[in-house]
Design a binder for these strands. Structure first.
Lengths: 356, 356
DNA sequence: TTGTATGCGTTATCAC
DNA sequence: GTGATAACGCATACAA
């Protein structure tokens, strides 16, 4: 039934449907070598004589043979697939991270599966399960808020993983990111240093979002250290869109000048730009009447007038390092990915000044 | 050697390293059923009695068993993996498309591989090959400019594919997108209708980019029909960044007012915003001195002052439809994906007016 | 350097 | 409804 006596013309009787594509075995038969040699020709070319190697390559090409992923994965116990789960691709923060990861993985012969959790940890868990069933060898997850069962599954299956966009000393998992809390302490301290005493915060929703919670914590810590607290009505939470920034601005400027905040800390540059647009529409002067800070430092932040004071985060570096850590783990047995803290940079521009 | 007599305690002697994870066979042994029944319990639950089914589920859970992707794929001849290749994730145009695709694929139990070609068709071909070797069942490719060998490979392997972000009547491949040429004819005609006669174009590079070539063609056709031509120095090509838009603006405003263009057609909203910023910096009045058009209608376009006249493109719809077409093909044998034209909408706002 | 034989973990066929 | 068993396509230990 096997190999060497089979005439090329007689199709082997099959009890099941195959893929219908050429198999390595057929390449071997036509090249007059064994299947082992064909396999070696592609995977360990040095151990095959140049002549037979070339013969194998050309007959494979003539047949249009492509190694079957499943067969290869089953025999070699490697899928060459990694995965990443992020909240959404609509935020350039994450698309930049994913783009950088994909590049690193591709350089190491790994394909990248991607899925979005839509800020829902349970959906993220489902996506991760689906990826595991597709045989991912490593996984990158945005943020720290994931079901314990996910971590348990990954540990049990010995799938290395890193958490991105966040970093905490002493965290129980490998993290590649920055300290969100410290970053917002820095922003708040900077504004306090300018003399601001009345603050507002325009932030994206904190549900299931450890990064946002850290940021709020950072702001509150810095304010408390200055003997201040954030008035509940000055904590404005909503979708990270220009529109929400604009409407928040209108809400803030409607207050009497005496109690009105003089500094507005925004959760990201989109919100900050929205606030800036809204305040400008209302005739306010920036930074004369209000100081505004953003976060991320998107390209537009430095080009508008007045240019936005914000915190630079290198999301591509986060993606690159996270992927590198995972690639490293796939080399060694039992290697665990290392945490890595990425630095942020406060970029002081024109939307901040001392209060009037 | 097999199953039913093996004591749970005695590890089966293996001549090779396995995955080290629990196998379906062990679930079967512990549940006191055959491997076939375990497989059925998960894949065809109706054909297994409720009691044994539950018993199987619980022992599988207790063992932490996860089906091996390779084994399953090899036996079932399905990987449940689709792929998408785009130029870059740094452009929200594509990240929105990918996000929409991922959602549709996930709803149909398919995981999504992603790769970026960086606007290099050869790199794209390599990425596609890598995906094919990972067993993708279907592929979405941005644009039409791909090596013929790629199309040939996909056809030979019977992997259904669609091209996105472009649409042409009578194209040889399934396409989901819009007619870039017609869209720019429309923009140009609109400006001509306002009375403009001197045009400039600020466009992203056209190398290996059929979409950009179509756009330029559209502009030139519309101008020619009006008896006009674009002066070479008024075709400014460069990276689709704010900075390039700004520098292009400075270049244009440096010309003597008599020969200066009165309308500036930009390849996308980022370039248009850059031009707008650059002209405003230079003290020009918009739309008094210059009319500006963008493309894509990003959120910011309608919020800035003056609001940008641009063309709306629903990239999420493109991604959704492309993925749906591919999913449809995976159902039937020999089904080919269908082309679908997505409509664009000219959104006239404040950056365009009749020339002085 | 090359071939032989076998296992990788699952599904599908067929018989019961 | 269930079990036995043969594929699925490839890689690799081992022998030659």
């Amino acid at each position: 039934m096997t190999g060497k006596l089979g005439e090329p013309g007689s199709p082997i009787k099959r009890s099941r449907e195959g893929s219908g594509r050429a198999r390595l075995e057929e390449v071997a038969r036509r090249a007059g070598v064994s299947t082992a040699t064909v396999s070696r020709a592609f995977n360990l070319p040095d151990r095959v004589s140049p002549e037979t190697r070339e013969r194998i390559f050309s007959t494979a090409k003539a047949l249009g043979w492509v190694p079957n992923a499943a067969g290869r994965a089953l025999a070699s116990n490697r899928t060459h697939i990694a995965g990443v789960i992020i909240p959404t691709l609509d935020n350039e923060i994450f698309s930049h991270q994913v783009g950088a990861m994909q590049r690193v993985f591709a350089e190491h012969g790994l394909n990248l599966l991607i899925a979005c959790s839509n800020y829902d940890p349970d959906l993220g868990f489902l996506q991760a399960k689906a990826m595991i069933e597709s045989g991912v060898e490593a996984l990158a997850l945005a943020g720290e808020t994931h079901p314990q069962a996910l971590y348990d599954n990954l540990d049990a299956l010995r799938i290395p993983y890193v958490l991105t966009y966040a970093y905490r000393d002493g965290a129980p998992h490998a993290m590649v990111g920055f300290d969100n809390e410290a970053a917002f302490v820095q922003i708040t301290d900077y504004l306090l240093g300018l003399g601001h005493r009345r603050f507002a915060v325009v932030m994206q929703p904190s549900d299931n979002n450890d990064r946002v919670l850290s940021r709020l914590r950072g702001i509150n810590i810095a304010l408390r250290n200055a003997g201040l607290t954030l008035a509940p009505k000055h904590l404005i939470i909503g979708k990270a869109s220009l529109d929400f920034g604009i409407s928040s601005a209108h809400q803030l400027i409607a207050e009497p000048a005496a109690t009105r905040p003089t500094a507005i800390i925004c959760g990201n540059d989109t919100l900050a730009l929205g606030v800036q647009i809204g305040l400008t529409q209302a005739g306010a002067d920036i930074p004369g009447d209000f100081s505004i800070t953003g976060f991320d430092d998107i390209e537009l932040a430095s080009k508008l007038s007045p240019a936005l004071t914000t915190m630079f985060v290198d999301n591509r570096e986060i993606g690159t390092i996270a992927a590198q850590q995972l690639v490293l783990c796939l080399g060694k047995e039992n290697a665990a990915p290392q945490s890595h803290q990425v630095m942020t940079v406060l970029r002081v521009r024109q939307t901040t000044a001392a209060p009037a």
